[in-house]
Amino acid sequence: MSTLYFLIPIALVFCVVTLKLVLWAIQSGQYRDLDRDAHIIFEDDSTNPKDPMDE
């Protein structure tokens, strides 16, 4: 059980790093448009149905 004295601080360090990353992402505007980004994955240009005569 005494490993807890060692492991909990390590976990806390990870937590602080994660927090820093999240705050940086928010500050840099990555969460400004939550409506659009949810759909970007569907926007694949290769699925564009093209007229074969055009090629």
């Binding site: 976990a11 927090l19 705050l23 928010i26 505007g29 969460y31 400004r32």
Partner: peptide
């Protein structure tokens, strides 16, 4: 309002991570 939006998100993120710990 945009600034407030960012601030709220930050507070929410801190509370969320804190809640997990």
């Amino acid at each position: 309002l945009a600034q407030e939006n960012t601030d709220m998100l930050k507070r929410l993120a801190v509370a969320g991570l804190g809640m997990m710990q």
